[in-house]
Design a protein around this nucleic acid. Structure first.
Lengths: 192, 192
DNA sequence: CATGCTAAGCGACAGTCGTCGATTAGTCGA
DNA sequence: TCGACTAATCGACGACTGTCGCTTAGCATG
């Protein structure tokens, strides 16, 4: 990002690049997208891309920023004291959002996806949960558990479930998946 | 893997390639390793590598097979009915193993790591846990939760915690990290 | 030991990547 | 409207990738 963010030329160029990337991402897996191809599709010189993004991962992260923000926002909205029987509404919304964009998430988080994107999503998710802990009620059951580890546990579990759900072809409804996940989060996942 | 597995020439070549890869992995991040460099280090012709592995990820997976197997084995040994206060011994061993090979796991699972390796680890971990469910006691608290989702939840949570623990510089002891993780798994991670 | 099989070596190919210096052209303020 | 600034273009570079056909050489069987 060496160029001026406010220059309309730069703004246009980045917009074209994001659109071209998302077009290609809808057609093939993320791993099959090349810098050259994005440049051709966007009708932007290849060298110009490097004025805006250090690599393709950064462009992918920018193009998928809205999706990532939605996931972290919904996760951060979940009340931590909801009853174990039924998932809080934001968690259901989160799974609904995933289902609506399943091809994109499958490609971004699957074996042909992007490491840096997956790592970023996990870290931002953990950060959102950590902020939620600071802002209010942290479950008393986790006394002695470092909050960072606690947040990483939940973020990893959520992403693990999402990956499995997508990989299995989205069996059941979003509410079913959310309820099952919430039950494990609230009631424990071992020793029943 | 187009070549004969039993031919001593092929066996030697693969051994050289694995060693060269692990040497390079100890020196720099996985993302900074190239096929050409492995070939030079192993003193094997670059084209020959393609006779044994479709890409660098496959070579990485082969070279790190022992490490992955250790993690899945230890995870599969955990008794699911251990008391929440202290983690079962295999889980402590798992965190000890991670700590002993922290640089390798940090590079393999971090932002400069390998997607396919991370995905493979998560899937094999989930498969090991699923096998454990079939073999015996599945917690009754998870009634109504599909076993595949349950296994993915635990695998994701464990990898999330491991990534956080490594990223934070291995704070505390392996037993501390294992105990905190087990407490969340056994007692629930929300609604305390 | 001689012969057939095949792994490994070798050189070449087109394509991609990341970078560079020099040029063109779009923006904005005076 | 003119001029300074700078985003974008262009062509080129060395390096890496994946693949190919051909040759060399190590292994195993008779």
């Amino acid at each position: 990002m060496r160029v001026n963010v406010n220059d309309p030329r730069a703004h246009r160029t980045r917009s074209y690049l994001r659109s071209a990337f998302l077009e290609l991402a809808a057609e093939r897996g993320l791993a099959a997208i090349t810098i050259s191809e994005v440049a051709r599709r966007a009708e932007i010189n290849r060298a110009t891309i490097y004025l805006h993004y250090p690599d393709l991962d950064a462009l992918a992260a920018d193009a998928m920023g809205d999706a990532v923000a939605t996931v972290t926002r919904l996760a951060g909205l979940c009340p931590l004291d909801a009853p174990p029987e039924s998932a809080p509404a934001p968690l259901v919304d989160l799974f609904t959002h995933i289902a609506e964009h399943a091809p994109l998430y499958a490609r971004a988080l699957g074996a042909e996806g992007s490491v840096s994107l997956a790592v970023r999503l996990r870290e931002e998710l953990a950060a959102a949960l950590l902020a939620r802990f600071s802002a209010g009620a942290r479950p008393t059951v986790s006394a002695g558990v470092p909050p960072e580890l606690h947040a990483a546990y939940l973020a990893g579990a959520l992403l693990g479930v999402i990956a499995q759900w997508i990989g299995a072809g989205l069996p059941g409804s979003a509410a079913d998946a959310a309820n099952a996940t919430w039950r494990l989060m609230a009631g424990g996942a071992v020793r029943g």
